[in-house]
């Protein structure tokens, strides 16, 4: 697969997600864990979406999960993506779901429920969590 000349849209860390992206650079998948009810969440908000507690700790996730669902994109929305590519939702062992891409597998071989493990895609100033079959 040839790499497109244009970069795909890369996220810019915001304040709540900064430790997540710092962790990614260090090869660690970081989640917020509610200090009151123990629920894990993706670090997109200061309040727990189970109990609304604003108190939390940062925890390293196992990096393991399963494919919750996926699609294979054929429509060109952005020049930074080589078609076709998969868009995959991984259900993390800790519970939350993360939207990502599977690497190291043919799109035709992806199955819902298959175990996967995190792997890091490094860009100039940001690192992204991708997943490959475990």
């Amino acid at each position: 697969m040839t790499q497109p000349a244009v970069s795909k849209p890369l996220p810019e860390p915001d304040e709540p997600s900064l430790p997540f992206f710092q962790g990614a650079t260090d090869g660690r998948l970081m989640l917020m864990k509610c200090a009151d009810c123990g629920a894990f969440r993706l670090p997109s908000r200061h309040h727990c979406d189970e109990c609304l507690s604003p108190t939390f700790t940062w925890e390293q996730a196992s990096g393991r999960g399963t494919v919750r669902t996926f699609g294979v994109m054929h429509q060109r929305y952005h020049p930074g993506f080589a078609l076709p590519y998969n868009v995959t939702v991984v259900e993390l062992e800790e519970g939350p779901r993360i939207t990502t891409n599977l690497v190291g597998i043919d799109n035709a071989d992806i199955r819902v429920g298959m175990p996967v493990t995190v792997e890091w895609e490094r860009h100039e100033d940001v690192t992204l969590p991708k997943f490959r079959p475990a």
Binding site: P9, P11, T88
Partner: peptide, 27 residues
Amino acid sequence: RPKGMAGLYAAAGYFGANTGYALAARR
């Protein structure tokens, strides 16, 4: 550049409702 965790969607090539409904239908 998309901000924060929401940016993971665009970085994965998740665009528009077509993607969301494909994910639901596949499930």
